[in-house]
Design a protein around this nucleic acid. Sequence first.
RNA 1: GCCGCCGUAGCUCAGGGGUAGAGCGCGCCCUUGGUAAGGGCGAGGUCGAGUGUUCAAUUCACUCCGGCGGCACCA
Length: 637
Amino acid sequence: MKLTLPDGSVRDYTAPVTGAAVAADIGPGLAKAALAARIDGEMWDLNREIPGDCNFSIVTARDEDALELLRHDAAHVLAQAVQELFPGTQVTIGPAIENGFYYDFARDEPFSTDDFEAIEKRMAEIVDQDLPIERQVWDRAEAIAHFKSIGEIYKAEIIHDLPESEEIIIYRQGGWKDLCLGPHLPSTGKLGKAFKMLKLAGAYWRGDSRNEMLQRMYGTAWADEKQLKSYLTMLEEAEKRDHRRIGREMDLFHFQEEAPGAVFWHPKGWVLFRMLVDYMRRRQDEAGYVEISTPTLMDRAMWETSGHWETFREHMYTTETEDGRVYAVKPMNCPGGTQVYKQGSRSYRDLPIRMAEFGKVNRYEPSGALHGLMRVREFTQDDAHIFCTPEQMQDECQTVVRLILDIYRDFGFDDVRIMFSDRPEKRIGEDAVWDKLEAALKGALESMGESYSYNPGEGAFYGPKLEFVLRDAIGRDWQCGTLQVDMNLTDRFDVTYVGEDGERHRPVMLHRALFGSLERFAGILIEHYAGRFPVWLAPVQAVVATITNDADAYADEVADALKSAGIRVETDLRNEKINYKIREHSHAHVPLIAVVGAREAEEKTVALRRLGGKAQEIVALDEAVARLVGEAVAPGA
RNA sequence: GCCGCCGUAGCUCAGGGGUAGAGCGCGCCCUUGGUAAGGGCGAGGUCGAGUGUUCAAUUCACUCCGGCGGCACCA
């Protein structure tokens, strides 16, 4: 048997051999550091026999992959600790995840985060015991019988449901056994102690909300203390960027009990919101859109026609008037859009018609889904509906994709994932039409050289879609933009245009939103910039702060000059020291502080200090105004 | 919606069956200062809402509302 090492050298073995033995052969240092073997790129348990000729390497703690092993082991050690401390707890599954691991337990009594201390302590003991971790292949029936006999009905169920072709692999550490594909570290001691239990949460058995709820424990695990510490520090930093916290600190918005999931925008937050709308409106005007506005309340009949009444009802708010009419609060803008299109008759010469609407929609979202600005029940979409001929469809899709990516770039989001979802099981329309729609969407991306991931069967029931996903500062992915091709609503509302042939035809209707929800996008920006907005977006662009009261009049003069140049400026004439004022406005993330004292008043200058900078710069008032105005220009304006 | 935790001053939080606490912020006074916290005094609370247990509930129990972390959901 020939093993090719990473350096190209070849080792020959006649008898069956394990990764551990090879490592020992190579050197005692490596043997000690070895965590797993890599056989043709696949990780193998150190003590598992190598099957034959292969490319061979040893995985040590320095390997990226080692963390995954380590975290998976941490999950097992957690499960063992919990079962030792809380007899009667059943284990289910426990994988390694990004930055850590979790394990789902079944137990009648709830766990508490207060239990974490004891659990971590027991985990450390198991690490100290350095129990060998052993891989065993079991007989299926025996395995099921074993787990049933010790009351592990979930494990028994998992084994029962595994395909017949699958080997039943059991990992044993000390007296504790778990069904697991592996691979694992050679012993619990290799896990080390750079782990920490983080949170406790519910999770449905097998991820299905119809099933019972298990108790999930999340933890994080790293190769050493230093890594662990830097991860925990990173979490703290992420928390500081949380848009809900910054929103309060910068006085941007608030929520209150009486309006769950709906935003009260404060003056400063509304400036941000308005800037986003202004920006998008400008971009859309340039891109050949017209803008409309449609009713918030429409008769239930409208929603019956659109299909929302049957498919979306549980998310809709309704209201009834004195006369017994039932109205629904719009959860989407599309039905209204079709009605504007339908006024008068449309010719192929009019197409494409790109109708934008900053529509405020209400959706009754599940209470548990609400999350600051990111997931609300009342939000504003930068929506648009593009009515075009089938021939124009692909071009229009391309134009939309180009616009979206270009707009995201203006906010520094260069890393955008595009997801393409095609026909779902439950759908309407001919397959031939689906072929065309999917080809148009895919073709638009491919001809632009944009890569995308593929979500088979995840499209809307009326057509395929693209989703544009940004990653926020805390590493969460947020779907912002979307582009959908619709063949449903045009039909239901009998939307037509007159073609060259004088006959009526069905236009294609593209639904698209670029920011998606303006509320959510604002939230993402707050976290993205950590409150330190570029000047054009900053709610307060400059503060004029005085050294002493003697400069009050001049400070007002400076503020007036800035204000009449269109700068959002405040004055700070309080009887406080300049240190105090600088500190406060720096915390408020004001991009520019103009300090004025007797000298500046005398010379008609200001001392400009930039957020985050240490230095000040003395410039003439006119020049300061010109400079600020230049910096406050929105992208593309 | 489900599981767990939480709800006390504007904010962050401590407390605990019998006159409610701190820091920051806020107001007034002193201080008028040159680039990230000057000093003093003071005001500020239906302890999320309701029901129950109790001589007595902010504290204990239950229900509801809201929030947080996940899960499920996001057409």
